[in-house]
Simulated assay, not measured.
Amino acid sequence: MEYLKEHKNIIKKEANSVKKFIITFLQNEDEKGRNTDRAVSDLADLFYQEYLSSNLIEKHKEYFKKIINDLRFHSYNYDPKKVDRILKTLENEVYGNFMEIKETFSKHKIEDYEIFEKLTYESFFSQILKYTLYQKVNARLENSIPHLIEAIKLFYELNNYTDFSTTFLIDESEKITVLKINNIFKKYGRKFDLKKITHKSSNEKSIIDKIKSTFDENEKIILLNLAFFQGDTIEKTEKLKLILLIGELTDYSLFEGLAKNSTFYKKVASGIDHYGKKNQEVYLDSILLKIETLELNITKGFLRKLKSISIGTK
């Protein structure tokens, strides 16, 4: 598998392509006279549409979660003094899982199985590397690193992208420090307002608190089912977000005896199936509307899938 040694070049080349896409879009928006916030917001929307919405791995990402996590956490499995950690992850964990996924698609005739049957590992490894980059960039454009968004806004206002490095797209978030962004602001004689970012974080907390207060007990039960009874369908980070979002519960019947005798437990274990078909769509639509602005993409996708199943079985 000599071709795997090209992994760094593949990521670097694709990051340069993504950077060009971002700069070109922002320059076009500047020519249209768009204000900064609108331009950056539209950039995030367009990036998802162009790079992820029709991506085959994104479409079937529930099957690729383990591969994505192996690549994301490659630094924990190998010693950097001994080996290239990403290379070894691609040779071992990713390859093994890829072969299992191909077999699963073929055996169960899952949608697009013909494509996966023909897909070589040489082609796939390049696709999965690019996909993980797209995920990372998408999260950043959606404000996962607020000070980076402030830098992008600065570049837009100056119409100067000299300091827009591909490392902002590739590096792990902890390497994109506030100090690094502050130095860019200083270079252009601008003041970097850290309080502005802190204030935004407070506003986001306020928004989440308001959303939390709108969930009724039935909607909380459905979200608990997603967090605890859907296996690995939803990744751990997103499950924690759901638990925080659910907040306080008022049914303490679980403390009064065996779980199997608890009505509350039975409801949570059943999830959406506990409710009649007429109410299922109502609850699912309500939850989707309430979490629309939150970064819960896996949850949203799963809820839409449940809604589709519910409508299809009426």
Rank of each mutant, 00 (worst) to 15 (best):
160 N>S: 10
125 F>W: 06
123 S>V: 13
263 T>K: 15
29 E>F: 04
304 R>T: 05
116 F>N: 00
71 L>K: 08
59 K>V: 02
91 E>S: 07
87 L>M: 02
90 L>G: 01
183 N>H: 11
249 L>A: 03
227 A>D: 06
42 D>E: 15
208 I>P: 08
56 L>F: 11
120 T>G: 10
174 E>W: 04
231 G>N: 12
211 I>H: 00
67 I>C: 04
54 S>V: 00
307 K>C: 02
207 I>C: 00
30 D>A: 14
22 I>E: 05
38 R>V: 11
83 V>A: 01
153 K>C: 03
115 I>S: 10
100 E>W: 00
189 G>K: 05
207 I>F: 07
294 L>N: 12
244 L>T: 06
169 L>F: 12
204 E>F: 05
194 L>G: 00
221 I>K: 09
70 D>C: 02
14 E>W: 02
153 K>P: 00
304 R>Y: 13
257 G>W: 11
135 Q>K: 13
91 E>R: 08
173 S>T: 11
84 D>E: 08
135 Q>G: 15
96 G>Y: 05
60 H>K: 09
1 M>P: 08
119 L>Q: 07
261 N>L: 09
291 I>W: 00
222 I>Q: 01
127 Q>I: 09
9 N>H: 11
127 Q>H: 12
214 T>C: 07
277 K>A: 08
208 I>M: 03
118 K>W: 03
260 K>E: 14
109 K>I: 01
163 D>C: 03
219 E>N: 04
116 F>K: 01
167 T>R: 13
121 Y>S: 05
141 L>C: 04
170 I>W: 01
312 G>T: 07
180 K>I: 04
208 I>K: 11
204 E>L: 08
3 Y>R: 10
287 I>M: 01
219 E>W: 01
299 T>C: 03
100 E>P: 00
268 V>K: 08
131 Y>Q: 06
29 E>A: 12
61 K>V: 02
39 A>V: 09
72 R>P: 01
292 E>A: 11
235 E>D: 14
268 V>G: 08
217 E>W: 00
73 F>C: 03
270 S>H: 03
268 V>R: 09
56 L>D: 09
272 I>Y: 05
65 K>V: 01
129 L>M: 14
218 N>Q: 10
16 N>L: 12
71 L>T: 11
235 E>V: 13
242 L>H: 00
291 I>L: 02
165 S>I: 01
247 G>L: 07
95 Y>F: 15
